[in-house]
Simulated assay, not measured.
Amino acid sequence: MNHLLALGAAVASHHDTTLTTAGGPPVAQPIPAEGTDRQALLWQWIATNHFFNSSLWAEEDLARRTTVSGDEIAQNKRAIDRFNQARNDATERVDEILLTELGLVDATSAQTDAPVAKVPAGARLNSETAGSIIDRMSIMALKIHAMRAQTERTDVDEAHRTSSQVKLDKLLQQRADLGQCLDELLADTQAGRAYFKVYRQFKMYNDPRFNPVLVAEQAAQAKG
């Protein structure tokens, strides 16, 4: 499992490189089949999570426009729901892959609604998963990317650029902290000192079977 060593720095580099090369939100890549090498599959889902976070970021900006119709804002809000669901799904997938590789989840149940955790004797439970840390690092990369752009603006005064640089330095430190926490968590899990679980979000508002408003709409439509 050498590829899990210093994963924090590798994730940060991937996030930054993707944003820099694309000049904005990264381009979605196809998801490999389940038979693909597990390491490649892990990185593909890390990239997918980053893509949907980037899409979510762009859509959140659009949703705050004040000179367009309500219909356009409604479309933005629906897109935000879709991207947020996809982002969470990718985060869970990252955890499934990592926990399977670490031997901390029963492989046959990893992708079900009730994954069965394998708990090492005496290990502490970490409330935040590795996938959720990577998800936070993705969002932090977007903040860093946007704040760095503020430090390079020529249409603002020096005070704005200086203030933005202070914020950028703090964001970089915060992301470095997250990367360190990720590495320490993975090191502790491999040493049997800690474990985490696949946590399902079960976002009911996106599911027409569980959202009471959508259930009522379907019932009304069925009555004709």
Rank of each mutant, 00 (worst) to 15 (best):
F196E: 10
H145I: 00
H3A: 06
A194Q: 03
R200C: 05
W57F: 11
T17D: 13
W43Y: 09
G224S: 13
D37G: 07
A121N: 12
M204W: 05
L7W: 03
L102Q: 02
W45G: 07
D183K: 11
R93I: 07
A58G: 06
N53S: 15
R78I: 13
W45L: 09
E152T: 07
V166D: 01
Q173R: 15
N88L: 15
L98E: 01
L185D: 08
M1I: 02
T48M: 12
R175W: 08
I144K: 01
V116P: 02
L5Q: 13
Q180N: 07
K143I: 00
S54D: 13
N206I: 02
S132D: 10
W57R: 14
Q201L: 13
R93N: 08
A110R: 02
E158Q: 10
T21Y: 11
Q75G: 07
A79V: 06
G131W: 04
L19R: 08
E34P: 13
A10Q: 14
G24Y: 08
S54H: 08
V27N: 13
H15G: 09
A117M: 01
T154S: 04
K170C: 01
S127E: 11
R161Y: 02
H145N: 06
H50S: 13
A219M: 11
S69H: 07
L168M: 04
T108N: 06
L42P: 05
A33R: 15
V119S: 05
K167C: 02
K118A: 08
G192I: 05
G8Q: 05
A194E: 07
R65H: 08
K118H: 09
P212S: 04
L41I: 11
A79L: 12
V166G: 03
